[in-house]
């Protein structure tokens, strides 16, 4: 049996991949990877790799669902069968994937300036090529970058991260030990949540736009784990946003250079 985080963390303050509690995995990203689409990005967080293409805004193909005042955001997520350790056959109508799709859609539906494109559709297509935890988080970040690439107006960049909590037992007497950006092994072992924020106006605080948690965790009480996880997560989102902005700036600089 491999080592686990809970039993050794208190003594070493190290996680199973050698990170400290507040360190992200390596994030790399590039945009405009797929010239055939309107916007695209390729994002890696550690061993998780997501390819995103955005089509639109364009005229909605399904008449009935057209919104007369706003654009509709549609999302399709496809986890490659080779993305994880075991080769998995794709199940059609996987409820979990469907929920992720609607989470991503609604996050951007309210974030983008959709009122500029009434009666049209923006399709986000996400391909998970390799998965090592943080599925929703990587999808949100990749989509965020691809939407920027597609030139769809938005007030700020939506950045997401997962955060978890290392606590020895169920008991509420110990202080919470939050950790940031969990990989797959940690997700199996620890309670965690996925959080995404958008930056507010200059000077005001970031706003949480997505928050999901599927594990059991103590919410109330003196040493609330949820609170520490969220605080850590909001900080983590800032780090992620900085990295994404870097990517965009670099890409922009390159584009400008190409024009000259």
């Amino acid at each position: 049996m491999p080592l686990d985080t809970i039993s050794t963390y208190a003594q070493t303050l190290l996680r199973q991949d050698g990170r400290r509690w507040n360190e992200l995995r390596r994030i790399t990203a590039s945009i405009s990877t797929q010239p055939s689409s309107d916007g695209s990005s390729l994002l890696t967080m550690g061993n998780t790799m997501v390819l995103c293409t955005v089509t639109g805004p364009r005229e909605g193909n399904r008449r009935g669902q057209r919104d007369n005042t706003n654009a509709t955001v549609e999302t399709e997520i496809n986890v490659a069968s080779f993305a994880q350790m075991d080769r998995r056959r794709r199940v059609r109508n996987d409820k979990r994937i469907q929920e992720l799709q609607s989470t991503v859609s609604s996050a951007f539906q309210s974030h983008l300036f959709t009122h500029l494109y009434p009666r049209s559709t923006i399709s986000i297509s996400l391909h998970v090529l390799s998965l090592d935890g943080a599925l929703l988080v990587a999808c949100l970040n990749a989509a965020s970058l691809a939407l920027v690439d597609a030139g769809i107006p938005m007030p700020s960049i939506l950045a997401a991260i997962s955060s978890g909590s290392v606590t020895p037992t169920d008991d509420s007497s110990t202080r919470p030990e939050p950790i940031l950006d969990l990989n797959n092994v940690e997700e199996q072992e620890l309670p965690f949540l996925s959080i995404a924020t958008v930056s507010g106006h200059p000077g005001s605080e970031d706003k949480v736009s997505v928050l999901t948690m599927e594990s059991r965790c103590q919410i109330g009480g003196a040493n609330s784990k949820l609170e520490s996880m969220m605080a850590t997560g909001v900080d983590g989102c800032k780090q992620v946003r900085r990295k994404m902005e870097d990517v965009i700036r670099k890409h922009g600089a390159k584009v400008l250079q190409g024009r000259k």
Binding site: T12, L14, D17, R19, D86, N183, V185
Partner: peptide, 16 residues
């Protein structure tokens, strides 16, 4: 009898 190939990242550091 199933065989799996496991890939894990390791972050090397100097502050241990």
């Amino acid at each position: 009898g199933r065989v799996q190939k496991v890939v894990r990242e390791q972050y090397l550091r100097k502050d241990i």
